[in-house]
Amino acid sequence: MNSLVRRVTAACLLGAAVAACGGHGTTAPAQRPERRATAAGPAPSLAPGPTGLAPVFAHGPRREKAVALTFDADMTAGQGARAAAGERFDNPRLVATLRRLKVASTVFMTGRWAEEYPEQARAIGRDPLFEVANHSYSHYAFTADCHGLPTVPGRRMRSEVERAFAAFRAAGVEHAMPYFRFPGGCYDRRALRRLGTAGVTAVQWDVVSGDAFAKDADAVAQQVLDGVRPGSVVVMHCTRSAAPATERAVRTVVPELRERGYRFVKVSELIGAADRDRRDRRGRHTAS
């Protein structure tokens, strides 16, 4: 599958923008990730492959009309000056709309975003409507040639994940999920191997919203509506300056998909369903 590297147009646009935002910053010492769990017990996850690679999840079972809207809260380690100058990498209106519409969602947050907006990170993390997952600390790429993003050295890949979880804890996010989204959507076997001991499931998507830098909310909404299937994972963004049309698109997407019979779920529900299906298949195979 093209050396396992995943690229999408929306991620390309967003990645090219953040790549121009400054230097690599510093790396904090790696911290051992704690066992993250929901109130009901351990978070659903997929088992690593037989070669120790981190598992990859792109969509849930196709049997039920459930869809996961996911929002990348992107901010790189080098964008502090732009934030200090007034650029907004958050999107409170989008979060308020998701709450008003009661849309369960998963927010893939960079550690740097959590440091810049700790009150918002904490509020999202404590709201049962949402779950927070890991989008790396710096939003630098885990492969070479990933939309112009700076590249994380192999030796720092796991610490990028651990440092982000540490930033979430510092902001007051108590139960971040053990899910990781690669910056730019780019990964290969080396990256999966490096994260194989980090205890995370790599979460991709099967529907690209095209919201990065888009100004036409109707076009974004139509792209989502055209792509959604049962079990879909939709990638969108929670960054006001880089995805200004997302909130308006959501106001169109949500009622339309509900009219079609879909319900909105967190990524954890789809992963749980996929894991149950896998165990059921294994049980039937063993029984036969």
Rank of each mutant, 00 (worst) to 15 (best):
A144T: 10
V235D: 10
D90R: 13
D90A: 10
A39C: 09
S159T: 15
R35N: 03
R229A: 13
G227L: 08
A77L: 12
A54Y: 05
G148A: 02
T151E: 14
A104R: 14
P128E: 09
A274K: 09
F89R: 14
L225V: 02
F71M: 00
T9H: 12
A133H: 06
G22Y: 12
G148S: 00
A96H: 00
R99Q: 12
D206Q: 08
M75E: 02
V107R: 13
G184T: 07
A16V: 04
M236I: 13
P48K: 13
T9W: 15
A85F: 12
A40H: 10
V132S: 00
P230A: 08
C12I: 11
S209A: 14
P118S: 06
G60S: 00
F89N: 14
V103M: 03
L101R: 08
A37W: 10
A114H: 13
A133F: 03
F182H: 11
R276Y: 02
G227N: 05
S3L: 11
L270H: 11
R100N: 10
R189V: 07
V265E: 05
A16C: 15
V250C: 05
P92K: 08
N2E: 14
L14F: 14
T201A: 01
A273R: 09
S268A: 09
R258V: 04
F213L: 09
V95G: 02
A274Y: 01
A11S: 08
C186F: 09
R281G: 13
R281N: 09
E119A: 15
F71P: 00
R6Q: 12
G22F: 12
R169V: 07
T151H: 13
L225K: 04
A28G: 01
L14C: 08
E64L: 14
G86S: 00
S241F: 14
A133K: 06
N91M: 06
S268W: 02
D216M: 07
S45R: 15
P183D: 02
A66C: 15
T97M: 12
L149M: 12
I271W: 00
H147T: 07
A167P: 10
V267Y: 12
K215N: 12
A217Y: 14
S138L: 05
D280Y: 11
V224N: 01
R240L: 07
P44W: 03
S138M: 11
R190L: 06
P150C: 06
P118R: 11
R284Y: 08
L46A: 12
P150K: 01
L195K: 01
D90T: 05
A43S: 11
T110H: 02
D145L: 11
R229K: 15
T201Q: 00
V56S: 02
P230C: 06
V8L: 15
R7A: 06
A54P: 11
V220M: 02
P33F: 10
V107W: 14
R278Y: 03
A249E: 05
Q204W: 13
A242R: 14
R36L: 08
F182Y: 10
L257P: 03
M1G: 11
G41N: 03
T143C: 06
G154R: 15
S268F: 01
V208F: 09
P150D: 03
A85Y: 04
A47F: 02
P55L: 12
K215H: 13
S268L: 01
F130I: 07
